[in-house]
Design a binder for these strands. Structure first.
Lengths: 201, 201, 201, 201
DNA sequence: TATGAATGAGTATTCATTCAT
DNA sequence: TATGAATGAATACTCATTCAT
């Protein structure tokens, strides 16, 4: 009866295992379309066991988004920026952000897709977005002060940088995100005319 | 139970009415969480009637995305571009695209959220994205040829322009999309120093 | 599939049928120990159908006690008393009350046994008891005024008359209730000494 | 988890503790609606422990009714009667019976409510009722022989005396049982006119 | 002895779908 | 065409019971 997966898991490990199975199932099918039975099967346990660890399917969802918070990793992505020039940093940030979205694709899909029906999940999503906006915004502001970037509303840049990356990873999945090209465009702008004419026009 | 108003409805109008009700319900709760009864109630008819018009819940979903195609409107958004300068056009496109996302929010949410589970819906979404990419890409290429924009992969610009707008409308719902500011940043780039100095600095 | 029991029942008849089946099951096993499946089987329908007619098992319970109210019959039992002498009336009332408890045994068991967990059911029980107490009390008071019965708290007599009968029917089920003997004892009292000594003692 | 206090408990004390907890839970919610876990929680132990002491939930029920037998106390209630006059004794018996029902309310509710589904429990109830009927019947017979009470079927008097009291305590819970008034009515009878006039009137 | 993780059959309830009217 | 009663499989959740520790 005990499959190699069960390996005498202590309560904590078992909980982790259930959370991981739930995350996968929720991400793959969406919360509403996921069955407790499917989660239990994915974890290799009997259906009833889930209720030893979580009060309800909803509670399991909340436990999942809490357990697999993106906040630490999202902070790390921005942390390396420090006060290095945007030229170097933004490409790096975009690439690492892109990697994060891939590695944590299951959670991201869950937050994005099922958040709108579940206020608590929505709150986690918004908090994560707000945090990355704040941190990256602070960095950008510093670069403006340092004279590297021209003055502007930094939240817009955060969105301009991350939304295109997120769009690809959240759904289209296809071609690599071409982070460097995106950053190059962002920094230099689209216009062909020499920069000094743009500003003096 | 059937009011004189309902009786007037020919088969086509009734079908339209059911599709509209289904769209609203699917968008509000997601496909999986929506009930045939809810749709029927929203349309003010009995549950069984839906099966006179659609073979199944799934078939209804497909009929909805087919009926409410975004393609015509998406084409119109780009159509006005013609060969006018990007300076004028891009802000206009972004703003109209933003309006479109708002006006057709129900369909957009449906395509985006439930597409990944339903290949046919997914195909519609991808087709729509591909079309807007193609059309806007052609315009951008023309502006590069015209010397207004510098040479680059135009799909990236399409994404840089539309992804930030879509992000806001698909989920965060909050602040207006600030299309003009976004376009201004995109055109001019983030860097403060004149372009000819950048490389030598 | 259509058994002779199903006989194209209209919605109202079907509802009645379900209520009757539910009453029997609840009375036989108690509310908590009764299964929706059992009720459906007793009515010869599929389990899900119950939810067309009743929102929940609890709602079904309430509908049952409401539908099969004892009030009309309880009133009839007392109604015949009018202003005839207690000598004649009390035995009659006891006997008819006894018959009522037998005929409506299922409902009575349900009210008595499951009422304490279900406030709404409890209320019905208490209301019924209060009504019979009031009506029979009024009669007894009239007999006191008429000089047939000696002055006393009439509620006590109601209880003295009906509790012994109810006790047998609610549980012991065995020997007939010997209503006449009970009434004889009640009227004449237990004491052996002549009545005129009792009063003058 | 096991506090020093629990450790002290020998097997017998622990058994007692579990029986007491079970009695409370069964009385409060009924057998069917009571959970093993609730009983364990009420006793402050883990769910599995109950199965070291009792083979099943059903076995636990039987052990409860056996352990908390009313027989000794029921005998005591009647014991004091001896050969004293009914005038003194009956009120006393009713009052003590009433007190007994209150003190042992949990068991009484359990016997009464869940007995009908569990033959063994039912047997205990009937045995108890039979015993009180026998003992009190013997006393009443003695009083008839002594000339205090008039000849009649004494079981009826037992029921007339105890059923009204039991009715109040088993359910209505409200006003005190007014034992003395009940006994007074019982002894003296309801009729106003002297007994020797009744038949000739 | 005592725990509590684990099971799996069972329960109330939902819901897509069918079909007689 | 339109209704809504009816089905039955599926779903979330419960709970008596077992068992390794």
């Amino acid at each position: 009866m005990t499959s190699p997966l069960d390996t005498t898991a202590g309560a904590v490990e078992r909980r982790e295992q259930l959370l991981a199975a739930a995350l996968d199932c929720f991400a793959a099918r969406g919360y509403a379309a996921t069955t407790i039975k499917q989660i239990a099967a994915a974890a290799g346990v009997a259906g009833g066991l889930l209720y030893h660890y979580f009060a309800s399917k909803e509670a399991l969802l909340l436990a999942v988004v809490e357990r697999f918070s993106l906040l630490p990793e999202v902070r790390q992505v921005v942390a390396t920026a420090a006060d290095r020039p945007a030229r170097e940093v933004l490409g790096e940030v975009a690439r690492r952000f892109d990697q994060l979205l891939q590695q944590r694709a299951a959670l991201v899909r869950l937050l994005w897709r099922d958040g709108c029906q579940h206020p608590a999940v929505d709150a986690v999503w918004r908090h994560t977005v707000a945090e990355v906006t704040r941190l990256l915004g602070e960095y950008l502001t510093a670069r403006i002060v340092a004279g590297e970037l021209r003055p502007h509303r930094v939240e817009l840049t955060v969105r301009l940088l991350l939304a295109p990356v997120a769009f690809v990873r959240l759904r289209d999945g296809g071609a690599a995100a071409s982070c460097d090209e995106l950053v190059e465009l962002l920094l230099g702008g689209l216009l062909a005319a020499p920069a000094h004419e743009r500003e003096t026009r």
